[in-house]
Simulated scan of single mutants.
Amino acid sequence: MKYMMLIYMEENALSDTERTQCYAESAQLAQQLNSKGQYLATAPLHPVATATSVRVRDSKSLVTDGPFAETREQLGGFFLIDAQDLDEAIAIAAQIPGAKVGTVEIRPVIEVAGLPEP
């Protein structure tokens, strides 16, 4: 089953040096998952100042700067993995460097027929 792991943390939780180390550790984890056939995708996100939110109401688009929710922790990146079950996904999430300073939300991915193959 595919699982999306959303990494939330305060934007300033890491120094530049710590962020660089976090990226290196994340790349290492991605390589480990890839060697087991579990890696699908991962990426950090630019700061929330670069975010744009789109809502459609009454057939009209409302575009606003910033993230959808005003919270202390922001979505900072993601891992998309293939795991046997939630227990295995939890074990992988615990290895994500961002879990040390933030929160990793795990959600199963719904497989929708008719989508293009990656």
Score class of each variant (00 low, 15 high):
Lys2Ser: 06
Lys2Tyr: 15
Lys2Asp: 07
Met5Ile: 09
Met5Pro: 01
Ile7Phe: 04
Asn12Asp: 11
Asn12Glu: 12
Leu14Asn: 03
Leu14Pro: 07
Ser15Tyr: 13
Asp16Arg: 14
Asp16Glu: 15
Thr17Pro: 07
Arg19Ala: 00
Thr20Met: 15
Gln21Met: 12
Gln21Arg: 15
Glu25Tyr: 09
Glu25Asn: 09
Gln28Lys: 14
Ala30Gly: 07
Gln31Val: 08
Gln31Ser: 12
Leu33Gln: 11
Asn34Tyr: 15
Gln38Pro: 09
Gln38Cys: 00
Ala41Gly: 11
Thr42Ile: 06
Pro44Ser: 10
Leu45Asp: 02
Leu45Asn: 03
His46Leu: 13
His46Gln: 12
His46Ser: 15
Pro47Val: 06
Val48His: 14
Ala49Ile: 12
Thr50Tyr: 12
Thr52Asn: 12
Val54Trp: 10
Arg55Phe: 13
Arg55Met: 05
Val56Glu: 00
Val56Arg: 04
Val56Gly: 00
Val56His: 01
Arg57Met: 06
Asp58Ile: 06
Ser59Arg: 14
Ser59Leu: 05
Ser59Pro: 05
Lys60Trp: 03
Lys60Asn: 10
Ser61Asp: 13
Leu62Lys: 12
Leu62Arg: 08
Leu62Asp: 08
Val63Glu: 00
Val63Gln: 00
Thr64Ile: 02
Asp65Cys: 10
Asp65Phe: 03
Asp65Glu: 11
Gly66Asp: 10
Gly66Phe: 14
Pro67Ile: 02
Phe68Lys: 09
Ala69Lys: 14
Glu70Met: 14
Thr71Arg: 15
Arg72Ser: 13
Arg72Gly: 11
Glu73Pro: 04
Glu73Cys: 06
Glu73Val: 08
Gln74Cys: 13
Gln74Thr: 06
Gly76Arg: 12
Gly77Glu: 03
Gly77Asp: 02
Phe78Ala: 06
Phe78Met: 02
Phe78Pro: 05
Phe78Thr: 01
Leu80Ala: 07
Leu80Asp: 06
Asp82Phe: 01
Asp85Lys: 07
Asp85Trp: 01
Leu86Glu: 11
Leu86Asn: 08
Asp87Phe: 10
Ala89Leu: 03
Ile90Cys: 08
Ile92Ser: 01
Ile92Gly: 04
Ile92Pro: 00
Ala93Val: 00
Ala93Gln: 06
Ala94Trp: 05
Gln95Gly: 07
Pro97Ala: 12
Gly98Val: 08
Gly98Leu: 02
Val101Asn: 07
Gly102Tyr: 00
Gly102Glu: 04
Thr103Gly: 02
Thr103Met: 11
Glu105His: 03
Glu105Gln: 06
Glu111Pro: 00
Glu111His: 09
Glu111Asp: 14
Val112Gln: 10
Gly114Met: 09
Gly114His: 08
Gly114Val: 10
Leu115Glu: 04
Pro116Ile: 13
Pro116His: 13
Pro116Ser: 10
Glu117Arg: 07
Pro118His: 10
